[in-house]
Amino acid sequence: MRRIIVLLALILLSTIVVAQDTALLVDITFLPDGSARFDDVQATFAGIDHESGKPLADGIKMEVDGTTYYQTYVPVTFVLMDARERMPEMGVTRRLPYFGNRGGIIITHDDKTVASFDLAQLCNNDGRCDRFENGISCPADCEIRVADKVCLPIQDGGCDPDCGQGLDPDCGKRAEPAPLSLYLFGVMMVLVALYWLYYLFWRR
């Protein structure tokens, strides 16, 4: 019963979560010395973070051929409210716009580049579904039937193992055998019919 309620809630939610795009899900760790590192970058299906125009010390830029096309800032404090200790590092997840695998993401601290990520890593066309690749950024390496943590719920001729039940239209019902009780009932019906025929023609 609870599963049905959750499913209904999710269906309702999917109608609420609107205007979603293909986004780059970017995990970044900021350190107190001003440095930063990329923990993960994956193309996915999600809402995109709007640009924050207000300049802060730590920022994220997206560039192609030296031209910035997206810029936002991240408040980094290491102050965890109500904890008695400061965080040794701060991890954030951002959803950046996905324009393809060209260019790069740059993290800045006081306008200096502290880390960068080459978006070409999202697809290297080597026939294997590698760390940063998935069916969105690299369909050549990550076929739809390969599990890559991203569900593509579209009719594309292949069942995506990353999709929940009933989400991918390609994941049709597999052939299931009829229940055993049906066979028992069928055979008994045949026997009853035979007995009736025997009674009708033989015993008379």
Binding site: L10, I11, L13, S14, V17, Q20, A23, L25, D27, T29, D40, T44, F45, A46, G47, I48, D49, H50, E51, S52, G53, K54, L80, A83, E85, M87, P88, E89, M90, G91, V92, T93, R95, K149, V150, C151, P153, D162, C163, G164, L167
Partner: peptide, 28 residues
């Protein structure tokens, strides 16, 4: 102290698997 860092990705992946959509982006 560091446990909340993965909440976003964890829920994003679960939600995307269940609905095809992910979490909404932030606006400012």
């Amino acid at each position: 102290l560091t446990i909340t860092r993965g909440f976003d990705r964890h829920v994003q992946e679960w939600l995307q698997k269940q609905t095809g959509h992910g979490l909404s982006g932030v606006r400012f």
